[in-house]
Design a protein around this nucleic acid. Sequence first.
DNA 1: TATTCGATGTGCT
DNA 2: GCACATCGAATAC
Length: 195
Amino acid sequence: MYNKALKREFYLQDTITVAKQLLGKILVIKKNRTLLSARIVETEAYIGDHDPACHAYNKITNRSSTLYEEGGTIYVYFIYGNHYCFNVVTEPKGRGCAVLVRAVEPVEGLDYMIKRRGKTIPIYNLTNGPGKMTQALGIDASFNRKNLFTPSIYIYHPENQPNFEIVTATRIGINVGKEFPYRFYIKNNPFVSKK
DNA sequence: TATTCGATGTGCT
DNA sequence: GCACATCGAATAC
């Protein structure tokens, strides 16, 4: 239900806090006839003011301008000529901070995800990476600058959430800012992109 | 206007 | 483990 969606205040918190607390939450996307949902199992924090890996680290550009919107805004960008990455903007407007969602565990809409991905075996291959999950969920540039308070896309905190342990690590696929321990994932979850 | 290269995935060795 | 596809944003000129 849409009214379960996390409120704006959740996203206005400190970026590290949001990155950790997003683990275990459910991302819901509603297409015309199709309901997709997936549990977030891996995130990375990108922090504008001191983090050279963040797209908002240098001066504001056309691409990175979405990062300066208010927390709860969706930031989607295209990378390596093939892939989209899905981010959630955090903190108050103007900070340039976001959380990258790197991997999810499918809950509803498996048929749709399998059709979009083609490759189905093993099952965790559907969504265990930033580019893979956006392909499975049908996320593209049209989502950029939208927010997480609409019936067509939102995140909620599930009831009866099982306990899990959070692992903190360094981020993947970047050349600068490697030293920051800004990657978080659910321990022993098979949908995490890399050990 | 030209050139570089990236918050990746895939396939081959 | 390594090469490479692929293209738009950023940067250089």
